[in-house]
Design a protein around this nucleic acid. Sequence first.
DNA 1: AATGAATGAGCATTCATTCAT
DNA 2: TATGAATGAATGCTCATTCAT
Lengths: 197, 197, 197, 197
Amino acid sequence: MTQHSVPGEQRPANEGRKAAARNRAALVAAARDVYSEYGLDAPLSAIARRAGVGQGVLYRHFPDREAVASAVLEENVRQIEEAAAAEDADLPRILGVLTWHLTESAAFIGLLHADEADGPSSVPPYAQALSERVERALRAHLPDGHRLAAADDDLMIAVAMVSGAVTGPTREQRERRARAAWRLLGAEVGPVRPFAR
Amino acid sequence: MTQHSVPGEQRPANEGRKAAARNRAALVAAARDVYSEYGLDAPLSAIARRAGVGQGVLYRHFPDREAVASAVLEENVRQIEEAAAAEDADLPRILGVLTWHLTESAAFIGLLHADEADGPSSVPPYAQALSERVERALRAHLPDGHRLAAADDDLMIAVAMVSGAVTGPTREQRERRARAAWRLLGAEVGPVRPFAR
Amino acid sequence: MTQHSVPGEQRPANEGRKAAARNRAALVAAARDVYSEYGLDAPLSAIARRAGVGQGVLYRHFPDREAVASAVLEENVRQIEEAAAAEDADLPRILGVLTWHLTESAAFIGLLHADEADGPSSVPPYAQALSERVERALRAHLPDGHRLAAADDDLMIAVAMVSGAVTGPTREQRERRARAAWRLLGAEVGPVRPFAR
Amino acid sequence: MTQHSVPGEQRPANEGRKAAARNRAALVAAARDVYSEYGLDAPLSAIARRAGVGQGVLYRHFPDREAVASAVLEENVRQIEEAAAAEDADLPRILGVLTWHLTESAAFIGLLHADEADGPSSVPPYAQALSERVERALRAHLPDGHRLAAADDDLMIAVAMVSGAVTGPTREQRERRARAAWRLLGAEVGPVRPFAR
DNA sequence: AATGAATGAGCATTCATTCAT
DNA sequence: TATGAATGAATGCTCATTCAT
């Protein structure tokens, strides 16, 4: 039994290959939105719909569910790396950017305690890699005697801890709780905001 | 065509009142197992199957998915309350029990950052109530000058933070990370174990 | 994102567990029909629809596509075995029954050159098993000096050959071609008809 | 927002008339490969990819799935015709070439019992035509008293029969079975190989 | 009170076909 | 003329929930 498409039917415009890059971006943006509304388990179809594209487009750009999440997180992680690479970078400033993304992006929170709730399905590899990039960015600016430099794991455990504290319906509340968390850890946090070069 | 009952058919005995309580307990135990194997999204049918009962029984006892999770958590929370009510209760000991449940039960972790990952679907009411019971149990033993007594929220934010740190495939690793988290918070933790009266 | 069903909606009658056996039979019958209309690749959903049941029912009774085909073929093969077990069984009579099923059931034809068209995906195991049952039934009545007893494979190669010849839009034509095929093989065929007890 | 062509973009050269023929040939070759790997239901996109061309090119050359198969078969049939037209042509030699194609090409096997498995969707017209060309080629060399000359249909029924017997994962096994089939039909077969002028 | 079959909506995924570039 | 992205229907499969027995 084959697939058909009724030839007479109207078919929405094919915007040609220029749309490709636009669509990819739209998908990532849509995914970000949808994730923050429905969580990381959101249906892929919802993402495609929100992006205003067919489902096939999503699959063309991202082979699987992880690739979508990965693309979304990639942007967050990159900002943190950029913050770390900035002229005036110091740990508080970078933590500010990190915290911004924690308060902003459900997906990014998920990255840090990477879906441990979903069964002992050891963290997916893409999350591992992204997480390591975050760690490198932070560690490069971690002063030697810093509280979070005591044990090897401490830094990323602290980040996970803060991400655990970031709950609540509004961004404001999430930021407040994140700040409280860093305070409890004795770490200074700069302004909580996205990194703009 | 008249439908008469086929005499040969096996029909499981109706074991009456007693069975009801036994079944409920079996379901809760099964849910705990299944949650820790498959995460909180495990199919309800898997829980019923593991409990050795029909799906209808699950629905008789629990109106919905949340009620099942809630029942599982209820037991965890009760142990913490019991630990707090014990003769020799003090904060470290209670934190030890709390931490035990954090390392043991995926559902319980979920309780604290109550599915925040699943969208800002403001914490479900049952989680709210359970969370407050945990808070009361801890606060009753929180010395006045304690680090975590500074701001009102600090106590439960700290708990959320620790729960955020509890990741990893083995219970041992989860416990190690939980201990590291409490250490970073400057809080003393007693032996990590379930409460046995 | 969860599954819902709008509670107010009408829901078709649940006919209870008596329907189970009826449904299984309906599915097998529907599968037989659908296979002969659309071939072995027919959508499972078409089979469920034709049987008048939900798709879930199909999956309850048959774990996968092969199980459905296997169930359909099972009946054909059983008839052949019964024909072989009959009082007055002899090779021509059994070949008659075999031929009946070849002319009747697209699925059964598929069994013999088991989807070889679908890539060198060596015959699925269920087909193997069923095919062997056919072989045993025939061989039990194969006289020693018979043309098809020369080499070991000859018998089943002959069956495959006949199945290759069975083409055409009407059963009559298929039967005519099958008879011609057996004639070319020098094998005698009894009346072409289903086996009735 | 005006859309101008991005200068940096690579744009595959339009190679004009010559490329067209080359592409068509590449597509047919690719289709042959892909068919033998995945069967006749292989995705058209796989064929285009294997041929190293865009999907549009495939559609330019072949209006539909059948046209592709038909083109592949066309080559097989032509070889048989050429074998029949050869100086030293005789039935065994031609059957050898025919058998070669039967053992080599899933598509070609499909031709003879032309997708009968896919429902009594009476053989597609293109298959009909190709099949008749095969018949003519054979019949031209069928001696008058030959076994397969008895009834009008016998010749092509025999071919269908052999094609039914051609199963198995390796070409060697398929050839062995084909030879056994011809032997059972009492027909002599020459060397099984492609026709090279 | 328990069983477990049935329902059917929902989501993932594939692929034929069109069409802007 | 070629490319390859986009479309979206079709299909497989899963599971929450209901309900006859």
